[in-house]
């Protein structure tokens, strides 16, 4: 069986952005590879270099607009070929490879299925700024958050459920609005100039604030239900 370097040395390769190689033809049965990590013809597994991006890994176009059902279908389809349970009788190293590949695919699916993480990932691929490089948020956000947070605290003190409900709705629609603005920026991230890419990062950073506000205005479902033993 040809795992590891041997399979890469003999296969045909696709050049990715950073000039790393990804096999496109199976070294065992010569079938075209729809996915870089497995031959769906003969179930041969290939270790994928870390540099391969999530879109290439899952055989998707590098776009923000993505059909969730299609991605879900890809993910189930791939699992049939690479899940470690499919290799229970295989040698230890093959089982380990199947586990690692499955983990990578599952991580990729989790990132791409989440619109915020997907946009952030596309921005990183486009050259950033990454979340580490740019920590700022859009100009008016902090003041807005401060006001809302005060209102939440007051409503909680008064046990004013109706007011909390109203605040949750406000925060929810603000969050949605921000996400709507993220979409076109993320879709064009690869071709965008530095100014647009920075704006995208600021808006992505803002999502955390909206999520936190939503959590603060929602009663904690864990607090009463899981007392420590």
């Amino acid at each position: 069986m040809g795992f590891g370097r041997t399979s890469q040395a003999a296969g045909e390769f696709l050049m990715t952005d950073d000039a790393r190689t990804v096999p496109t033809r199976c070294t065992e049965c010569e079938a075209h590879l729809d996915f870089p990590m497995v031959c769906t013809g003969c179930r041969q597994l290939y270790p994928v270099p870390e540099s391969v991006d999530y879109f290439t890994l899952l055989g998707l176009d590098r776009r923000y607009d993505l059909d969730e059902e299609q991605l879900h279908g890809v993910c189930l389809g791939l699992a049939r070929y690479i899940h470690p349970d499919r290799f229970a009788e295989a040698p230890e190293e093959v089982r380990r490879l199947a586990t690692r590949l499955s983990a990578e695919v599952n991580n990729a699916v989790a990132v791409l299925l989440d619109p915020v993480r997907r946009a952030s990932y596309l921005l990183d691929l486009a050259g950033g700024p990454t979340a580490g490089q740019e920590r700022g948020v859009p100009g008016e956000l902090l003041r807005e958050v401060l006001v809302l947070r005060e209102q939440i605290t007051e409503a909680k003190e008064r046990h004013d459920e109706a007011e909390l409900e109203r605040l949750r709705a406000t925060i929810g629609s603000q969050r949605e609005e921000n996400l709507r603005r993220i979409a076109p920026l993320a879709e064009g991230a690869c071709a965008a100039d530095a100014g647009h890419r920075r704006e995208l990062r600021l808006r992505l950073n803002a999502m955390k604030y909206w999520d936190n506000l939503l959590a603060e205005s929602t009663p904690d479902p864990l607090a009463p239900a899981t007392p420590k033993p």
Binding site: P84, T99, R100, S102, A103, E104, N106, N107, V109, A110
Partner: peptide, 8 residues
């Protein structure tokens, strides 16, 4: 609720 196998 993350699908397994998974890694960080």
């Amino acid at each position: 609720n993350m699908r397994v196998p998974c890694q960080a």
